[in-house]
Design a protein around this nucleic acid. Sequence first.
RNA 1: GCGGAGAUGCCGGAGUGGUCAAACGGGACAGGUUUAGGACCUGUUAGCUUAGUGCUUACCUAGGUUCGAAUCCUAGUCUCCGCACCA
Length: 842
Amino acid sequence: MVKKSIKNKIESKYDFEKIEKKWQKKWETSKIFQVKENKKKKFYVLEMYPYPSGSGLHIGHAFNYSIGDIYARFKRMQGFNVLYPMGFDSFGLPAENAAIQKNKHPKKFTEEVIQNFIKQQKELGLSYDWLRILRTHTPEYYKWNQFFFLKFLEKGLVYRKKASVNWCSKCNTVLANEQVHQGKCWRHENVGVEVKQLDQWFIKTTEYADELLRDIDKLDWPERIKIMQKNWIGKSYGTEINFEIETPAHEGCSPEPSKKVWPIFTTRPDTIYGVTFMVVSTQHYDLDQLVSADQEKDVEKFLKKIKSVGKKNLEGLEKEGVFTGSYAINPVNGEKIPVYVGNFVVADYGSGMVMGVPAHDQRDFEFAEKYSIPMKIVIEPKDYEIYERKGQLAKAYTGEGFLVNSEEFNGTESKTAREKITKYLERKKQGRKTIQYKLKDWLISRQRYWGTPIPIIYCEKCGIVPVDEKDLPIKLPADVKFGKGNPLTTNEKFLNTKCPKCNGKARRETDTMDTFFDSSWYYLRYCDNLNNKKPFGKKKIDYWMPVDQYIGGAEHATMHLIYARFFSKVLRDLGFLKFDEPFTKLFNQGMLHGEDGYVMSKSRGNVVLPEEVSKKYGIDTARLFLVSIASPDTDIQWSSKGIEGSYRFVKKVMKHFGNIKIGKTDARIESKLNKTIKGVTDDINNFRYNLAIIKIRNLFDRIPEKTSKEVLEKFLLLLHPFCPHFTEELWQNLGNKSFLSLHKWPITNEKKIDEKLEKQEEQVDNLVQDINNILRIVKTKPKSAIIYVIPNEQDIYEDYLDKIQKRTNLNIRIYSASDKNKYDPENKSKKVKQGRPGIYLE
RNA sequence: GCGGAGAUGCCGGAGUGGUCAAACGGGACAGGUUUAGGACCUGUUAGCUUAGUGCUUACCUAGGUUCGAAUCCUAGUCUCCGCACCA
């Protein structure tokens, strides 16, 4: 009882809990953050929507969302019509697994989690337009995934192909790459993951590779993300060369010896005379055709060995291979060279086969050395040293030089030879100039339940038939049995259907879509999320899109951000949109680490919950602190002591506004105010929130006890995006009836910025320092200070008299140096200079 | 291997040619206030030196450019991140 009353006494001055609840409620009931298209200029602020995980929000999320909310509030105050929505990426494997573990249906589980998320997000004071919420697991949303899939199919951007998947025989299901730990299933340590070939759906992202690459330069994105995307797309120029390959007769499949032309891709056609072998990937789907009867056993043995090693092994894997029994003919000189199958060739880059030039490629060199394949030098560098060592190659020479052992091309410089040889091959119809990308087509099939069903039907007569648009959505059946693999494959009700073409017996596709499909267009749906006739209305899209400011983590640099860009481009070509790029600007926030320096996680036990922080300091303080630690694009660390500093500031502001006296303003504070407005506006615009807050704090330190209402109001405006709740409260206390949230952002009045006045501040600081310096040195304990100033500076120091007294803890008297009646026992007035007064302490 | 980012005082972190012994916050220390604790206020926080001064050493290391470098260049060390046998 006693304790409680003390607590109340202390905290009665700043009851943040009450204030925050009050304003959150007011914002909600007044619907001020709900937006519609209008004549104002729009601004679309978007945070990457979260995956609703069971553990809820931690303070790191609060950091992420604060960054966006501050920006949205700022832009709103600047007069833009701001679209700032939130939604949930609610399909996906983790939900399915979590649901299975907790024996709860994924839908129920997910929706409960989302409810909790929303509650937590609302408590952070985020200014979302909650009417625009979307959840990807609802048929209202995923219907359009299916719709777009069909559109893509129509346009020829979808195809079906065999591809390898990770398969656990115990789980009886496909595993995601993250679920494969060192070649074993994540749940069954002793079950090796098999690589199975399954028919899978692909989207032709590669069709847009070139445009995706080209348009990167248009984007106002962090440079490193752009570079990552460029590398990911990986464009390289080279030559495609046709090698004829002879495979000896093979009883059963091919009784006659077969001849087949294989194209290979190389960036170094200048080394073609140095080819001494060929290597095909172990994963190549046509590998069988190359293997002769004699070599069949060896190859099989080798393939088995490779598979048991596991797909993704650590670096430094030794290059290995075996002879296939086939020979290739070098198109330039007719040489017959052996074809190997090797573990170091990537199956889906180029044609899955490479020409081996051991003298001029390090990988080929290692392979040739191991299997004693001859090496032929065809490029000689300008300095001959490399080759004179022991008469043998120590390593491949991969640089430029002049051609040797290359018949008519001898003596040509390697760079020109690339052109010449390519042209030569083109003339002989044995090759052509070409471009290769590292970017691969997008495999969207997931053999899992919790995702969008792929709208395809397999008819016994007609084969693969797309679902009719009018039959969408193909709903995910609710009543399913979990346990063994994808429950859709055993759900007869779902499986059995009729062929839309012939009305005959047919089965549904049981694969669902990769959730990156969902996230590739969700930003469009926000613009018109309640539309049940179309994915979105054209007018609305034209008004709101593209997203002006996208905010999210760098971990999405290559996946989501490429898919979304691709999707937009396709939709543009399908006539749905008019723009090329969905996200004009991108900001990558840093990661918030726990107090121990590690990433926040439950298992580490370093998770800080926003509720806890809120309870102790209020969410305004938490927001302020999170963005003042450092620039928001760097990784930051939570500090339970650091937040005290922000709390102190907030309390100081509350206290100051608790006993203000409205009076006149003066040039000094006006200058400081306008300088601050200018700086803060610029800082927020560029996400330098930490610097903006420093400027705001500096301004606050200069606000006198008695000042104009306008100064106080402008201060609140500047602070509002960071601390929306208590600033609203103080705004109201000043007698305002309207929302601060809707008030216009202050505009800098350049005329009022006076550098002279700013300099005077510095002079005063210097004086205080000087006095304190003397105080430190002097052995006596002076009680007062006499200051001698040049006559025209007298006013400056008198203005600051109170402050100087406070900061030095002395009585201060000021005399003009020219004053004849001044008290000056030690003649210190002699020391007076411009901007530097004389000081006498006693 | 390739590509990217970075290294600042006790800590976090600004600063990217002079206005820098270097913003701001935290911590520590000192003083004030207070019945006490807390809270609050003020100051100090590289070293020496001085009634408010001056000097030296300082922004990863070693060189260099410059009248002048935390900031630019060269080399190196370390840290973090992305891709990874892409022919």
